Structures are given as C-alpha cells and as structure tokens.
Amino acid sequence: MADDTEDCSFSRQPLQRSGIHDKHPTHEQTKAKQCPENEDIPQNLTLASLPSIYLRLSKAKLTGLVAMSALCGYGMAPGELDLMVCFLMSLGTFMSSCSANAFNQIFEVPYDSQMARTKRRVLVTGLLSRVHAISFASIIGISGILILTSYVNLLAAIISATTWGLYVTTYTPLKRVCIGNTWIGAVVGALPPMIGWAGRTGSLDAGAFIMAGFLFTWQFPHFNALSWNLRSDYSKAGYRMMATRNPDLCQSVAFRHCLFIIVLSFLAPYFNLTTWPFALFSLPLNFTFAYLAWCFYKQADGKTATYLFKFSLLHLPLLMIMLLISKKNLPVAKVFENI
C-alpha cells in the first residue's frame, strides 16, 4: 500500500510550513533521544516476545490487507479452485510483504523517530538491532518468493518480487524526493490481486487488471485523507506528500479516483469479471465514497479527511465482497443475474 495503514492515528495539529528539517539524526542519535513515553518498553529481547516483535516490524495489519487482496484476486480468477495452492499463494505473498515492510522500517529509523505515530516502532525503541532486523527481513522475503516459485507458479513469484522491489527500492526512498511517491505506492498496492490471479491461472487478462485498478484507485482517497491529518508529522520528517506540497492536488486527486472506481465498477461486468447487477448494487457504496471525497475536495479539514479515511476502511472490504458474490458464473451470482 501507499503507506502505513496500521499507524492511522490522526494528528490535529496545524501544518507547520517551516517544520521540514534539513538535518536528520543518525541511528545512534535516535536511540539516545528516546522519548520518556518509550521508557516503559522492555529492552530485554526474549524468545517469547519475538513473534509479536516480528509482527510489528512487518506491519501486520498492512501485510494482512496485502494478503487479503491477493486472496480476492485468486477468488475472482477463473479456473479450478485448489485450496493448497491458494494457501501457499497467500503465505508466500504474506511473507514477501513482511520482508518489504521490515526493510522499509530499517531504512526509515532516523525519520520514524521524529513522527508521533512511528516513534514507538521496534527499531526506533531499540527492541531489535539493525542486523537482527535485516536477517529476519532477508530470510522471510527469500522464503516467500521460493514458496511462490516452487508451489504456485513463476508468474506469481515474479509479480511478488516486483512488488517487493518497487516498495523497498523505489517507493521508500522516493518519499523524501517528490510527491510522485504516492503513485508508485499505489502501483505497489495494486499488484497483490494480480499475484492471486496469476496464482490461479498462470496468466493475466483483463479481469486481473480491473482488480488491480480497484486497488490502485482506492488508495488515493484512502491515503490522501490519512496524510491530510498527518501533515505536521510528515513535514517534520521531511517526507514530500501531496498533502504538504500541493494540498489542492491532494484534494482533487482523491475525488477524481473515487469517480474512477465507479467507472471500473461498470467495466467489471463489461469484461465478464462480474455480472451486470454488480454495477448497479455497488453504486450506493461508490456514490457515498465519492460524496465524502467531494466534501474533502470542497473543504479539506480534519473532519472531512477523517470521514473520508474511515469510510475508505469500510469501502474496500465491502466492494471486494460484492465482487466475489457477483463473480461471473458463480452460482450465487446467477441468482442476482435473474433478478
């Protein structure tokens, strides 16, 4: 995804236009400047605490969303359902995403220490060493790609590896360079359904790209609303986001992509991904999303951004469920088709 969905607490502080620092602390300085509120975090690493620490390092909620997106792609693809392949595809995708998110945290320790929502991350607080984190991220990432290559298929593995590469080597450093990082992040978030589709069919067709399109367009209202209320944090850490660099663009892009979701909802039945009733039944959900984005576009503030962000968390799973039950040639879909 474009950014850290699991860290979604909002800061209501006004944007500090001059708050972007030219100098950032080193990793050693970061550890020396621990916040008082972090002093209650145990610094003794135990075997029992490792699983929870690894999940925090892997951004478990975001990784879970990635795996669910891949599952939706697998579910929407044509072909025979193989539960073992489906499980291994999900596992490989989950592990690859864990690795990408871990490397993201490894690279951003000096900047995470300056943001209220990230200053309690495991590397910032010293729960794990950098070497330990790199070892974990490397082993789980390689293992995930090997699972996809050996037990799913090569195409699914290639797409997963591409997702990892874009997130770690392009999106992560680009966040400090230009606002184009949001589009790269949206591409990263759009690829998991294609992993699932490829895992079931061994190929990609129009349906795979429509599924990816839904994820790509959804991320703009979701992340732009999230970043609006975190502008002060992003500015302090030196991240270049639409919300801080071009607020008008941030608002218009969010609304524009909500309209694109409506278009995609009509393209889905046109390309035989779903039955035609899906386009009709999804309209109330999509229009509500677009209305909230319109309110954000007309008057962006903490209230409209919060409403849009919270509804985005409801919109995506509901849309995915509607897609799955409206899938072409699915028995339940034929019931709706006869209405």
Rank of each mutant, 00 (worst) to 15 (best):
S135R: 00
F136L: 10
F136H: 10
F136K: 06
F136P: 05
A137F: 02
I139F: 14
I139A: 15
I139S: 13
I139K: 09
G141T: 05
I142H: 03
S143K: 01
G144I: 09
I145H: 06
I145L: 13
L146A: 15
L146Y: 07
I147S: 09
I147W: 02
I147R: 03
I147K: 05
L148K: 05
L148D: 09
L148N: 08
T149N: 10
T149G: 00
S150M: 13
Y151V: 10
Y151L: 14
V152Q: 01
V152Y: 07
N153W: 02
N153P: 09
N153I: 09
N153R: 08
L154S: 12
L154Q: 12
A156F: 06
A157H: 03
I158N: 02
I158H: 00
I159A: 04
I159N: 01
A161F: 10
T162R: 02
T163V: 06
T163N: 15
T163G: 13
W164H: 14
W164F: 14
W164Q: 10
G165R: 01
L166R: 02
L166Q: 08
L166T: 11
L166P: 06
Y167V: 13
V168S: 07
V168H: 07
T169W: 15
T169R: 08
T169F: 15
T169N: 14
T170L: 15
T170I: 15
T170W: 14
T170D: 06
Y171K: 08
T172A: 07
T172R: 11
P173D: 02
P173L: 05
P173Q: 04
P173M: 07
P173E: 04
L174D: 00
K175H: 03
K175L: 10
K175G: 09
K175M: 14
R176Q: 14
V177C: 12
V177A: 13
C178Y: 13
C178H: 15
C178Q: 14
C178N: 15
G180K: 05
G180P: 03
G180M: 09
N181S: 14
T182C: 07
W183S: 14
W183I: 13
W183D: 09
I184E: 07
G185E: 09
G185F: 07
G185R: 10
A186K: 04
A186R: 06
V187R: 04
V187A: 13
V187W: 06
V187S: 05
V188P: 02
G189T: 05
G189R: 09
G189E: 08
A190Q: 03
A190M: 10
A190K: 04
A190V: 11
L191W: 03
P192K: 04
P192A: 04
P192W: 09
P193V: 12
P193C: 10
M194F: 01
I195M: 10
G196T: 05
W197C: 01
A198Y: 08
G199F: 11
G199T: 07
R200H: 05
R200F: 01
T201E: 01
T201V: 05
G202W: 02
S203G: 08
S203F: 06
S203P: 00
S203E: 12
S203T: 14
L204A: 07
L204E: 01
D205T: 03
D205Q: 13
A206H: 11
G207W: 00
G207C: 11
A208K: 07
F209Y: 14
F209M: 06
F209S: 00
I210G: 11
I210P: 08
I210N: 08
M211R: 02
M211Y: 01
M211S: 13
M211V: 05
M211P: 03
